[in-house]
């Protein structure tokens, strides 16, 4: 399947913040941190349907997300921080003590519907 390179931006959402108080063990929390927001035009270009699984690969690791269309610029992805983003994050801190926590270059590969997780 076709792949495309994106700039992945991780952040926080208020929904995630509320869910933390309920518990990080819940299915809702897992769903929140596994959902990536993509520009509708990018989704059309890659042939990704709403809710379809994609594999994100960075220089440091890979993780599987569900795609949701939303208001982000083309070529950019938004995802709330969580265990899947940890796998994509590099450990280097450039002497600052803080790893690069936003703006990772990732390759997105749509997964066939049967691989949905």
């Amino acid at each position: 399947m076709a792949t495309k390179r994106f700039l992945m931006n991780a952040g926080r959402t208020s929904k995630q913040g509320q869910q933390i108080n309920i518990g990080k063990e819940s299915d809702e929390y897992r769903a929140i941190v596994q959902t990536v927001t993509m520009n509708p035009d990018d989704m059309r270009e890659l042939g990704i349907a709403e809710g379809q699984s994609v594999r994100a690969r960075s220089a440091f690791g890979e993780a599987i997300f569900q795609c949701k269309q939303g208001n982000v610029p083309q070529g950019m992805l938004f995802v709330p921080y969580g265990p899947p983003t940890c796998r994509l994050m590099g450990g280097g801190t450039d002497g600052t003590g803080m790893p690069l926590s936003k703006g990772w270059e990732v390759e997105i590969e749509p997964l066939p519907p049967q691989d949905r997780q």
Partner: peptide, 30 residues
């Protein structure tokens, strides 16, 4: 970059950890 948490953990310098009110397992690099 040397004594900061992520760098220590990445190099494996420390042989024990006490975590207070934080969840590095959901935020730090793998």
């Amino acid at each position: 970059g040397e004594f900061s948490t992520v760098d220590l953990l990445l190099r494996g310098d420390n042989d024990a950890a006490l975590i207070l009110g934080a969840d590095p397992g959901a935020t730090m690099p793998q």
